[in-house]
Design a protein around this nucleic acid. Sequence first.
DNA 1: CGCAGGCTTTACGTCTACGTCAAGGTAACA
DNA 2: TGTTACCTTGACGTAGACGTAAAGCCTGCG
Lengths: 156, 156
Amino acid sequence: MRKANEAYLQIGEVAERTGVTQRTLRFYEEKGLLRPPSRMDGGFRLYSEDDVLRVEQIRRLQNLLGVSLADIKEMVDAEEVLRELKAQYRPEAAVAEKKRQLQKAIEVVQAQYAIVRQKTEQMEEMRTQLEERLNTFDRWMAELERLEQREPVAPA
Amino acid sequence: MRKANEAYLQIGEVAERTGVTQRTLRFYEEKGLLRPPSRMDGGFRLYSEDDVLRVEQIRRLQNLLGVSLADIKEMVDAEEVLRELKAQYRPEAAVAEKKRQLQKAIEVVQAQYAIVRQKTEQMEEMRTQLEERLNTFDRWMAELERLEQREPVAPA
DNA sequence: CGCAGGCTTTACGTCTACGTCAAGGTAACA
DNA sequence: TGTTACCTTGACGTAGACGTAAAGCCTGCG
């Protein structure tokens, strides 16, 4: 029982809002990508808004980085660590322990950052190449149009 | 028979150089991602340096964009069109036809460009978010270290 | 010529990321 | 209380992207 005031969602609503199927939601849960949601008395899954965000994040990582769900699991597991860290964040706790955990969190995010950064750079390189190619083509096209002026219609 | 002076490579060498397996090379050929290479009398495949480049490009697209081989096929097919266009590039041919082909090539590259551009932008957004998060953590860490100064060792 | 190592096709196996029933329980409303 | 829509857990199916083993040629070297 977390916040009782949060509006919980059934699997169908989550599926509709996130654009994935119910099967996919159960699959993600099975694979540890989503924390097992709470349940109604009858056994129906009850998702939180946080879960919706998680699903959306998973999809972004899938589409954007094109990495496996196993890799994504590592990332969202990291998010989980952050959540715990945040939840535990009471100033009265041992500072050294906090530092250790925060350090871990930093490393986790840095790893994510490294991946995104590397991919971004490689993509920008590819983008530059494509731009150059497009420029070349434009020049060729201009050249062809010049030729067209001089040789209006091919004879015979 | 293309250029006789080019050093041709057997499948094992190509596999080693590109880091993919022989099976993968045959698979790409089967799926139309690689042009069927020439063969020795005995039937052994003989790859060109161009083929090696193609394989490397395929891998880049796979890793970077995380798109399906079917999508990649469209892209390398486009490359093929470009190759043909370039090979045919004799000024005596019909200008209108050339324009048509070039236009097609431009559209193909623009499509690729659009994909890369969109992904790059989305990734940069994600990168920014991660940077902000790292900054936040750094501030937290600094705060913890300040606390550490005042409460040197936790008593009991 | 013999043979080791590389290559060929064929074909079944595997892993991922789900899709698609099937059989049955639950919620909500008339 | 019945009906209908939504949900549950299996369990089998599938498309993509190869892996892997089998049975048999090819090539190069001694």
